[in-house]
């Protein structure tokens, strides 16, 4: 399907913002703060989810 070039910048920005928000909603936000070394909840949750059936 052809796209008019005028929509191209909007497509790029929309893709960036949507995926950035998905990341933040998954818990990858700046909550830990400071000089980094953050520890997220996503990985432990994923591990727990995978361990439950076993």
């Amino acid at each position: 399907m052809k796209i008019h070039p005028r929509y191209y910048p909007a497509i790029i920005i929309a893709a960036y913002v949507i995926f950035l928000l998905i990341g933040i909603l998954l818990g990858f936000g700046p909550k830990e703060g400071g000089e980094g070394h953050g520890r997220g909840a996503f990985l432990p949750c994923l591990c727990l989810t995978l361990e439950v059936p076993a």
């Binding site: 893709a15 913002v17 995926f19 950035l20 990341g23 933040i24 990858f28 936000g29 830990e32």
Partner: peptide, 13 residues
């Protein structure tokens, strides 16, 4: 920071 993953996800998107 964990924010790096969100920024990376935006870029990959």
């Amino acid at each position: 920071n964990l924010l790096n993953f969100s920024v990376l996800l935006g870029t990959l998107g």
